[in-house]
């Protein structure tokens, strides 16, 4: 555990190593209810989730509360995390997104849970292929770093700041069609890279 903490505090550590570290921690929480590993995850994710909720327009108290709810869910569902479904960061993003939908949107996150449950019910193989996981993660990092600023801005506003498509259009003073096409281009960039390793 101590070695693990050293790794995460090292600013030189690559995104790949970080993702690998997160997987190890979540496995310890899921398998052994390991509190030290959970604290490491908390230290990394809690400030990101709180910032995400503040950006979505919640006040400090609400953001802190919702962050607590999200981390509680991470604790409770940690054994449901499966590495073949991607990074821990993406998995925790979906938990935070669902909490945000339930609190702020005129919608329920239930359909997302249904799909997730369906995947788990259908999935009997667990491909823990480290190399493939790392390659995919590399694709995501590469795609993000190569995105033109205008596309990057649009997806940040959508995923992190929780702006709707029309709010993004208004904020950036763009036609909605341009927002859509930037979303498609950003997705296309990632898709192109992933198809090369699939």
């Amino acid at each position: 555990m101590r070695a693990a903490l050293r790794l995460v505090s090292n600013t030189e550590s690559s995104a790949i190593e970080l993702a690998k570290q997160h997987r190890e921690w979540i496995a310890l929480v899921g398998g052994n209810q390991d509190r030290a590993a959970f604290q490491s995850l908390f230290q990394y994710f809690a400030p990101r989730i709180k910032a995400m909720m503040l950006k979505a327009g919640m006040n400090v108290m609400q953001s802190e509360d919702l962050m607590q709810d999200v981390m509680m869910t991470v604790w409770r569902k940690s054994a449901q995390y499966s590495p073949d479904r991607g990074t821990v960061s993406a998995w925790i993003f979906t938990i935070a997104r669902n909490a945000r939908i339930d609190l702020l949107r005129k919608a329920s996150s239930r359909p997302y849970d249904d799909v997730y449950e369906l995947e788990i019910a259908a999935d009997d193989k667990s491909s823990d292929d480290e190399v493939l996981q790392s390659e995919r993660h590399e694709c995501v990092s590469e795609a993000l770093s190569e995105l033109p600023k205008d596309q990057r801005k649009v997806i940040e506003l959508a995923f992190i700041a929780d702006l709707s498509q029309s709010e993004i259009a208004k904020k950036l003073d763009l036609p909605i069609g341009t927002v859509k096409s930037r979303m498609r281009l950003a997705y296309g960039k990632l898709k192109g890279k992933l198809e090369a390793v699939r």
């Binding site: 991607g86 821990v88 940040e156 990632l190």
Partner: peptide, 20 residues
């Protein structure tokens, strides 16, 4: 799923806000 991976990547590089 791929789009969610992208969102995870954005979360990794997103701003942070100190928790209590």
């Amino acid at each position: 799923h791929d789009a969610e991976q992208l969102a995870g990547g954005l979360l990794d590089v997103a701003e942070t806000e100190a928790v209590s």
